[in-house]
Amino acid sequence: MLTQTTSRVLEPSDLDAALAVLDRDPVANAFVTARVQVAGLDPWRLGGEMWGWYEDGMLTSLCYAGANLVPICAGPRAVRAFADRARRAGRRCSSIVGPAESTAALWRLLEPHWGPARDIRAHQPLMVTDRMPDGIAPDPYVRRVRKDELETIMPACVAMFTEEVGVSPLAGDGGLLYQARVAELVGSGRAFARLDDQGRVMFKAEIGAATARACQIQGVWVAPEYRGQGLAAPGMAAVLRYALTDVAPVASLYVNDYNTPARRTYQRVGFQEIGAFMSVLF
């Protein structure tokens, strides 16, 4: 038992305490919670370290340090401790992402050492719903992507990622990690799409993180030639039906504040803003 305010890398034996911290905000923490529930705290399985901040011997804050740097339930002192550890370790992540207030504070401390960032998205509304929308029928043609359709869905996933993030997910390792992630979502039944008569993707989305309490929808995309035809809201309603029926009682997502059409679509489907994320992209 630690008896002072300090930070350290958590070990597998710290799992229950870490899950208790994550459970304080099951919606905002869904991404990290889902990874921890599957992989535990072993860095090799988790894909990164989990840092913990202790006050009076109690674990009160976390920071996931993997492909993303994610502060969790982190107040000012915890943020400073995590920034010090991140600065000493050097930048290994491709982004810093998390609740806007703590992420902004973390970036202020790291920017002199890690900056400049490629892009900063300072306000990304976090939206949730726990019910199906009134007046918008789910698109009956949106369905789960089959395992033998991975090659069909992959170009749409790459296009969405490149459009959203500004770089191709195929860079670096040739896309091996990204393709493995898409294959994982397809294999677990959490990738959804509507195809046209030629077998091309018209609309797609995935449930990227899932716990017993909340899930997170991501990768929402309409093919450019089908935009403006009213596919997005019924498509989202279809994905939401799968999410609420088969996955978790609450569905969430976060969106760039400047993406007015997407925000309007999510509001039509019943999502309500409850907070904000921030992303710093390298």
Rank of each mutant, 00 (worst) to 15 (best):
G175L: 01
S94W: 12
A251K: 00
M236Y: 03
R91T: 15
V165K: 07
F161Q: 12
A233R: 10
R8P: 01
Y254Q: 10
R131L: 07
N259F: 06
A210V: 11
I72D: 02
S102N: 04
V79Q: 00
F271C: 03
R92E: 15
A86W: 06
C157P: 12
S94R: 11
A238N: 09
E49I: 15
T162L: 02
E49H: 10
R190Y: 04
V32Q: 00
R8Q: 02
L19R: 01
E206G: 11
A117V: 12
A18R: 00
T245D: 10
V239M: 02
V250Q: 09
T3G: 14
Y178W: 02
L126P: 01
G187P: 12
G270T: 13
A214V: 06
L2N: 07
G90L: 10
V165A: 04
A137G: 12
A30H: 05
V182G: 02
V70M: 02
N256F: 05
T211E: 07
G166T: 05
A100C: 12
P133V: 06
Q124G: 03
D14E: 14
T245K: 11
R8S: 08
G98A: 04
D197A: 03
V255G: 02
D148L: 06
W114P: 03
A28Y: 00
N29I: 03
D84M: 15
F271G: 06
S168T: 13
P133H: 02
L62T: 03
M278K: 00
S188R: 11
W221I: 00
G172K: 08
F277Q: 01
G219D: 08
I72P: 01
G48H: 10
V255L: 03
A223T: 08
L69W: 02
D257W: 03
A214I: 11
D134H: 15
G47E: 11
Y54M: 14
V182F: 02
A78P: 14
P76M: 13
L177A: 08
A251D: 04
P224E: 03
L46S: 00
Y254G: 05
P12T: 14
V158P: 00
T60K: 09
R144K: 06
G208E: 03
G40N: 12
A74M: 07
A156R: 03
A67E: 13
A210G: 12
T5C: 02
L195K: 09
E149V: 05
E11W: 10
Y242D: 12
P125A: 04
C93W: 07
